[in-house]
Amino acid sequence: MSGACAQGAALAFGCGPIGGRGDAGRAESLAALDAAWAGGIRHFDTAPSYGDGAGERLLGAALRRFPRAEVTVSSKVGRVRMAIADPYGPDTSRREPLFDFTSAAVRRSVATSLDRLGLDRLDLVLVHDPDQHLDVTLAETVPALREMPEVGAVGVGTTSVATAGALLGVVDVVMIANAWSLTRRDAAGLLDRCAAAGVAVLAAAPFDSGLLADGTAKYLYRDAPADVLARVRVMAAVCEAHGVRLPQAALRFPLRHPAVSRVVAGMRSAAEVRENLALIGTPVPEALWAALDQLVT
């Protein structure tokens, strides 16, 4: 396996940022997707709610140039619309989010996703943020997905450790976001359970929505609290003392747990893709992890 492929194998391309930006950034988004393929990334994750369908359409345009058999494509059902149209952009005005986890909605959603993506099958479908809808998820969503020949594996994608834990034994894959990062370790017990059950884990949002990438951006899509900012600055200094950049540690951290198969990072440009591939492919001294662990409360 080449160096690029080895780096890319650990990284999945999250389409949230390009979807949120929509067609306004089409050329840059397609260049990012091409750079991901060239760098060895083979898993591309999207959702209908990423830019109200734009994330799937952009990925679909790129997929026409990639050998289908070599690509893993995941999308989602249940969350129809985000509360913030582009959580990664400057406009944080909120709107009413929409959810529909009924079996009829799931079938329509998968069909629409396949049309946007130009595919006849999804390798993985994640039930998207079913935190307040577990009853219908168990009674309708998952059974509907299991019945669909155009759906491969079934998983859950959520920020809630409790939700993911409640669906262990029902799903094949867990995608957990904002709960297994340098600053947030809430998912540690969940990952142990996943490892014991043989459930693959996709660790999403390794940069905490931006803060760990540059130290000044949003934290969980909001302005970072002063105490979090201060702690991250200390983390950055500790990393520097070990000859490591903070985003390098942030990208590699999730892979410390054996249950994690890939890190899912949202990327907007070819430059970001190449930077992240270089970061995740650069080893981190073991002593650094012990020093960073002491800073987590």
Rank of each mutant, 00 (worst) to 15 (best):
L145A: 10
R146Y: 02
R146P: 11
E147W: 06
M148L: 15
M148R: 14
P149G: 03
E150T: 12
E150N: 11
V151P: 00
A153K: 03
A153D: 04
V154P: 04
V154F: 01
V154L: 04
V154I: 11
G155V: 04
G157P: 06
G157N: 01
T159I: 14
T159P: 10
S160Q: 06
V161N: 03
T163D: 11
T163N: 14
L167M: 06
L167D: 06
L168T: 05
L168G: 02
V170I: 09
V170T: 14
V171I: 07
I176L: 08
I176R: 02
A177Y: 07
N178A: 14
W180H: 15
L182R: 06
R184V: 12
R184D: 14
R184F: 10
R184T: 15
R185Y: 07
D186L: 02
G189L: 02
L191C: 09
C194K: 04
A196R: 12
G198W: 01
G198Q: 04
V199N: 00
V199K: 00
V201Y: 01
V201H: 01
V201F: 00
L202D: 08
L202E: 02
L202S: 01
A204P: 10
A205C: 13
P206V: 09
D208K: 05
D208P: 11
S209V: 07
G210T: 09
L211C: 07
L211M: 05
D214N: 15
D214I: 07
G215M: 08
T216W: 03
K218Q: 15
K218V: 13
Y219G: 05
Y221C: 07
R222G: 11
D223F: 11
D223S: 15
D223C: 08
A224Y: 02
A224F: 03
P225I: 03
A226G: 05
L229M: 13
L229H: 08
L229I: 12
L229F: 05
L229T: 14
R231A: 09
V232P: 07
R233G: 11
V234D: 15
V234H: 15
V234Y: 11
M235D: 10
M235H: 04
V238L: 15
C239E: 03
C239M: 09
E240H: 12
A241P: 11
H242F: 14
H242K: 08
G243H: 10
V244E: 03
R245V: 13
Q248I: 11
Q248M: 06
A249V: 09
A250C: 12
A250Y: 05
